[in-house]
Design a protein around this nucleic acid. Structure first.
Lengths: 335, 335
DNA sequence: CTCTCTATATGTAACGTTTCATGAAATTTT
DNA sequence: AAAATTTCATGAAACGTTACATATAGAGAG
């Protein structure tokens, strides 16, 4: 018996229903077919438990129903959140996701793009760190957080508004002198606007500020030096800190602890991303939350959009402020 | 011009190299081919930038070169680590990974199994929470951390040895009275052995111990009550705590802080998993580290193994203890 | 120098779909 | 009621690969 690995095909369904192959194909694809035929085919499909072979479909259509996601890793909470939601958005549309972890390696990024381009995927969504990434004209590509020219749509949170919002919140919470802590060029392009937004917000609210920007090789100890230099008689000259990411914020919280500064009493801290750690219900750190599910939806939508016409070069999605334990409660603030 | 979407095929390579189709196929698949032929084909491949169409391959071989990974989510650090390494192990073998996030939902798990089976994946790797999961005989399935009968291989860290190791370390570090903190049935099957291993280790080393096991609905506040009950005159009666996961350990650390207990001076804490948070270089918590890359390799190896003969029902991989900041250094310990 | 045997390149069929030209049946028109 | 027109199921071709049966060239033996 060869029935062990038997999987019914359209031919089998056609025979079972007593119709032609093409008729079955039409039923499967929802194309118009005479009612009695449709019914017989549908019954045969149910009876045989037939399921279309998407690989034969893909071969015929030169479509793979697969999209690649280029991302440094899946460990970082922000990346893992992006991965989760992109995957969900693709599954919803019956697409598979080919996960390509690049580990921040420019060459690996380029290799994955080439590999993906050949014919394995219908498109690529990328959160990349190679500014010179070569992408063939005809490969649908959607970028997260990186502007890559007019022809490639970029989806990002509204980084400028987010920076502004952080400044406004700190001002609202009573801060007078703020600091902005950032890491260098690896956060290029769109997230850079957090800085301009923050400056803009500070100026609007009369909040003075200083900036510390780490270069690529620098360790986070630089932040410790910077903060330490701004302590006089045990008192930190800043009463509010905006960190460019939650990840930076967590490191800064540790440093502040080491330096004997209390959060939020002595200094309030706001991060950016809205990532949580280890199943915490509430946000540990007050933060500007990126709408990751919306970002994912938008990426997939833009990627699979049929009409190539007018893909917008940049889509900014709105952010929200969510208080955590590192800022004063509005009630406390008013006391 | 129709060259816009032109993707070279084996036929093109054959024409370019002046050989037959089958010869190209052999070269591509590493089968023996006369040297001069091989060279000409390889040159043609390079020249045309040819890449095999894996969907045609899959159609021919009735293989999809895709494996599904069933996992609750990709946010939890342990799950994200598993995801990353399984993905890597599959890519290495030219397999794609179909990521199915189940959110601990038994029905969703079953749905994904059915979908994966019909959607024609070559096999499934699952870290599941549905004890009654129905899996068709002919679908290759490898389970992580869950025993699912003799026919389904289960890959896990050596949970018993890990529990034992934790007890021994605590004893070595000078503890006299230990606690084991666990959450309930969601950690079924293999990870349960951490308990037996710990008991075994405690008995062997003359370490007394108590257990607190949370039921499914319970919040972590139960741990706080439990620990609080064991404080007398500000002093905790335990000097060592083994937490069933790092995630539990982090929560417990917070609780201990709240209760005014110093770690590791007053009480030492060991977790299980070996997950790190937010790019920390060192482990924040002393922990029993699971060999996640090896677990991933083993899963994929077992899944894709051709000879169906003797798949072992259980593979336990060795764990290691890695000190973090929540235990005393051996030097301190000896003082 | 011819015959046989081996080694290996060739070319075709088949995998399960979709698409499209074909023709048969049903409907409308005169 | 016969011809013209429309409707729509049919079945073969094609997508890019692999595997197998066939053909061809070269080597060795008599």
């Amino acid at each position: 018996m060869k029935k062990e690995n038997y999987v019914p095909t359209m031919k089998d369904v056609a025979k079972e229903a007593g119709v032609a192959l093409g008729t079955v194909s039409k039923v499967v694809n929802g194309l118009p077919v005479g009612e009695p035929y449709r019914i017989r085919v549908e019954e045969a499909i149910k009876k045989l438990n037939y399921q279309v072979n998407s690989y034969a479909q893909g071969l015929k259509a030169s479509k793979t129903y697969t999209a690649a996601l280029l991302i440094p890793n899946t460990q970082d909470p922000f990346f893992s959140s992006i991965t989760y939601h992109i995957n969900t958005a693709l599954l919803k549309r019956n697409y598979r996701m080919l996960l390509c972890c690049t580990d921040y390696d420019s060459n690996l990024e380029q290799e994955y793009v080439i590999m993906a381009q050949q014919n394995k995927v219908d498109g690529i969504i990328g959160l990349t760190y190679n500014p010179g990434l070569k992408i063939e004209e005809q490969t649908p590509f959607v970028s997260i957080d990186r502007s890559m020219g007019a022809k490639i749509p970029c989806v990002a949170s509204d980084n400028f508004a987010g920076g502004q919002l952080a400044a406004e919140k700190l001002a609202d919470l009573g801060c007078k002198h703020a600091a902005f802590l950032r890491i260098g060029s690896s956060l290029s392009n769109e997230p850079n606007k957090r800085k301009s937004g923050f400056e803009n917000g500070c100026l609007a609210r009369g909040l003075s500020y200083e900036m510390k920007i780490l270069n690529d090789g620098d360790s986070f100890e630089e932040f410790e030096h910077f903060l330490n230099e701004h302590i006089e008689d045990g008192k930190l000259s800043f009463d509010g800190i905006f960190c460019v990411t939650d990840s930076v914020a967590y490191s800064v919280l540790k440093i502040l602890g080491k330096l004997g500064q209390r959060v939020p009493e002595d200094v309030q801290v706001i991060g950016y991303d809205g990532t949580r750690i280890l199943g915490d219900k509430e946000y540990v750190c007050s933060t500007i939350v990126q709408p990751v599910p919306d970002i994912a939806e938008m990426c997939v939508e833009l990627l699979l959009q049929e009409n190539m016409m007018q893909k917008p070069p940049l889509v900014c999605l709105p952010v929200t402020y969510v208080p955590g334990g590192t800022t004063l409660e509005p009630s406390q603030e008013q006391e």
